[in-house]
């Protein structure tokens, strides 16, 4: 009687643990494993062994959750963070608009709005595991390095460059390095293109933001562009005002480049969507007995060369 009670308690505890494990597991792509763990725990002899196995399942689920969850969060924080910086800088730029031309101010705000919209859309899309973590890490890392290098160059120079050409060269170099590294690591063209676009996007965004930061916060670092053509007797404040207007022209083109890069990244994320949940098993019911898969993803089955699958069926 006591033994039955203990057995029942251990069984209930194991069931509870494996149910927690199922809840902790990333919901979409690992639903098959949730059922696998539940069924496996049910097959283990009742007692401490079953509880230990169920605890292991819970630990495994936590590890999978950590593995799957950190990348999307990092993508969202990074992408939306850049978008927030853009919005803040656009508001600052618009508030202190010196051009006096309302139409150009509206056009500037429209372009920024389009870029921010693309940035948010692409970020949310990419965060849905559109690309491998390696691709995202290397791509974003390449862009960050490019942006940091450019910021260091600007900071160390007595005046900021007149245009973004130097920044674009640094971005292009880091983009090529990122694409090459991802090509070496993954050997997948889509991942390689995504890494290149991501590195170029992050790098270009940082070059633009750095320029805006210097223009708005450190106007003393703006080079003298209009000095030679200013009328004699112009005050320092007038020259600075005109320089501030002119310097923006050298960087505003980056917004169009950024819009193009973001569009490319969005399209590539949509075009090759892996469809992780396309082939998921129903979470409430295990699939029919005897059904088999070579991966949790439906698409992965499609990319496994026929020779791998035919080898198994020939056995």
């Amino acid at each position: 009687m006591t033994h039955d009670r203990e057995t029942s308690a251990s069984s209930r505890l194991a069931s509870l643990l494996v149910r927690w494990a199922g809840r902790v597991l990333p919901s979409d792509e690992l639903s098959e494993w949730r059922e696998a763990m539940r069924a496996e725990v049910g097959s283990v002899a009742d007692g401490p062994a079953r509880i230990a196995f169920a605890m292991g399942c819970l630990a495994a689920a936590v590890r999978q959750r950590a593995r799957a969850g950190s990348t999307p969060i990092a993508v969202r924080v990074g992408g939306l963070g850049i978008a927030a910086v853009f919005v803040g800088q656009a508001v600052g730029e618009s508030h202190g608009w010196l051009n006096g031309n309302e139409a150009s101010r509206r056009f500037y705000l429209l372009v920024v709005a389009v870029v921010v919209g693309l940035l948010v859309t692409t970020t949310l899309r990419v965060a849905r595991r559109a690309f491998a973590t390696t691709t995202l890490t290397v791509g974003a890392g390449g862009g960050l390095i490019a942006g940091s290098l450019w910021a260091a160059v600007v900071w160390l120079s007595p005046t900021m460059p007149r245009d973004a050409s130097g920044g674009l060269v640094v971005v292009a170099m880091c983009t090529a390095l990122s694409a090459g590294l991802v090509a070496y690591l993954t050997r997948v063209l889509r991942e390689c293109c995504a890494a290149a676009l991501l590195a170029a996007t992050v790098g270009t965004a940082l070059v633009f933001s750095t320029a805006e930061l210097f223009i708005q916060v450190l106007p003393g670092r703006i080079p003298d562009i209009v000095g030679p053509v200013m009328p004699a007797g112009s005050t320092t404040a007038q020259v600075l005002r005109e320089n501030r207007i002119e310097i923006v022209d050298g960087y505003v083109g980056l917004l169009f480049v950024l819009a193009g890069l973001l569009t490319g990244l969005l399209l590539i994320s949509l075009a090759g969507r892996r469809g992780l949940s396309d082939h998921r098993f129903d979470s409430a019911q295990p699939p029919p007995a005897g059904s088999s898969s070579s991966s949790t993803s439906g698409l992965s089955r499609a990319v496994v060369p026929a020779r791998h699958l035919s080898t198994k069926s020939a056995r």
Binding site: A39, S43, P286, P288, A289, S292
Partner: peptide
Amino acid sequence: ACLESRWESPAPRGRPPRH
């Protein structure tokens, strides 16, 4: 794709099929 998986067949009575 180093492993393939399937559900136990035929399904045992009284418990869900194992992976």
